[in-house]
């Protein structure tokens, strides 16, 4: 149940992978994932990988919005990938594709 991060080989893509439920208790962990090494992260393309995430709640949505604001990223610059049905549905209902690229 961890949040792991990695840069691509050429440092152009920064992926944050969330293992387990993405909810309130992960707040500090998640924040660390985008504030440590902030400068390098800002200049990369950011991807949130939810492959190992079962479900998300409203605080997770809030955390992602916070990240976008903090890193000054434009709408749909940050991608959210590998969502399962439940997660897709939640992102759909909240029309999150207005702010994030959902794949």
């Amino acid at each position: 149940m961890t949040i792991s991060t990695r840069f691509s080989k050429d440092n152009t893509v920064y992926t944050i992978s969330i293992d387990g439920d993405f909810e309130f208790s992960r707040l500090n962990e998640f924040r660390k994932a985008y504030t440590e090494n902030e400068d390098a992260i800002r200049s990369a393309k950011i991807v949130i990988d939810l492959d190992k995430t079962n479900t998300i709640d409203s605080s997770a949505l809030g955390m992602m919005l916070n990240m976008q604001k903090h890193l000054n990223k434009e709408d749909r610059e940050i991608s959210i990938i590998n969502c399962n049905d439940i997660v897709s549905k939640i992102l759909n209902i909240t029309n999150f594709e207005k702010k994030f690229k959902v794949e």
Binding site: S58, S59, L61, G62, L65, K69
Partner: peptide, 10 residues
Amino acid sequence: KLLPVGMFFA
């Protein structure tokens, strides 16, 4: 204006 970033009202 009122809510902190990350908080919202569905």
